[in-house]
Simulated assay, not measured.
Amino acid sequence: MLLTMLRPIAVLRAAARGFRHWRWTRPFWGGLVLVLAGAEVLAVPTARSLVLPPDLLVVAGLAGSSHYLIGALLVVNGLMSWAQPAHHSFHGIVGVLLALAAFAASNFGGFVLGTLVGVTGGSLVFAWSPHRPRRGAAALRRRPRRRGRSSRRARARRWDTVRGGSPAGR
């Protein structure tokens, strides 16, 4: 009975460990913020009929469809930053440019909030660097410095080179 109860816990721990590893190997938070920015840019014009008065929103561009295009591209850009972490700098720059384009083309970028969130997400994706595994304790220990005849010779050669003498003379 106890083993059947421990099995799901072990599976959940392994899944959490796997997700943590996946998250560390890609720009997770920047991609998530880009997806949220795209959703916000998409949601503002859609909310026109639900909550906001119709004269508050500007419908411009190709019959007001620029917010759909820019919002969808922001979402896809955030997802692609997860799928291709090696190209994080490209996705970060494109995310920032799309967020700035949303400000001009799509109701001030979702009332400025979508632009600010998009610029933040693109910056996070651009600034992300791959996770480097920690070095083990054995690699952190320094090798003891060799004391003896060879180190004295090396010091003498360096001193002769600094003074202008020939190190070959020794």
Rank of each mutant, 00 (worst) to 15 (best):
R17P: 02
R17T: 13
R17K: 14
R17Q: 15
R17N: 10
G18I: 06
G18T: 09
F19R: 13
F19Q: 11
F19C: 06
F19A: 14
F19Y: 14
R20V: 14
R20G: 15
R20K: 14
R20S: 14
R20W: 12
R20C: 12
H21Y: 13
H21L: 13
H21C: 02
H21F: 09
W22V: 05
W22A: 10
W22K: 13
R23P: 02
W24G: 08
W24K: 09
W24H: 08
T25Y: 08
T25S: 04
T25A: 04
T25V: 07
T25W: 04
R26W: 03
F28Y: 11
F28C: 01
F28N: 11
W29H: 07
W29M: 06
W29T: 07
W29G: 03
G30C: 14
G30Q: 08
G30A: 14
G30S: 10
G31Y: 04
G31N: 05
G31D: 06
G31H: 01
G31C: 05
L32E: 03
L32P: 09
L32A: 11
L32R: 12
L32H: 06
V33D: 12
V33N: 10
V33F: 03
V33P: 07
V33K: 10
V33I: 05
V33R: 09
L34W: 09
L34E: 14
L34S: 09
L34N: 13
V35P: 10
V35H: 03
V35R: 03
V35G: 06
V35M: 12
L36Y: 03
L36H: 11
A37K: 06
A37S: 04
A37W: 02
A37V: 06
G38K: 04
E40Y: 13
E40C: 15
V41R: 11
V41S: 05
L42E: 09
L42R: 11
L42H: 08
L42N: 10
L42C: 04
L42P: 10
A43H: 04
V44Y: 05
V44L: 14
P45R: 15
P45W: 11
T46W: 03
T46N: 01
T46E: 01
T46H: 00
T46C: 01
A47H: 07
A47T: 14
A47L: 15
R48Q: 01
R48K: 10
R48G: 02
S49C: 03
S49M: 03
S49V: 01
S49R: 02
L50H: 00
V51W: 02
V51F: 15
V51D: 02
V51Y: 07
V51R: 05
L52F: 07
L52I: 08
L52V: 11
L52Q: 06
L52N: 07
P53R: 01
P53K: 00
P53T: 00
P54Y: 03
P54R: 09
D55H: 15
L56Q: 07
L56H: 05
L57I: 12
L57A: 08
L57M: 12
L57E: 06
V58K: 12
V58N: 12
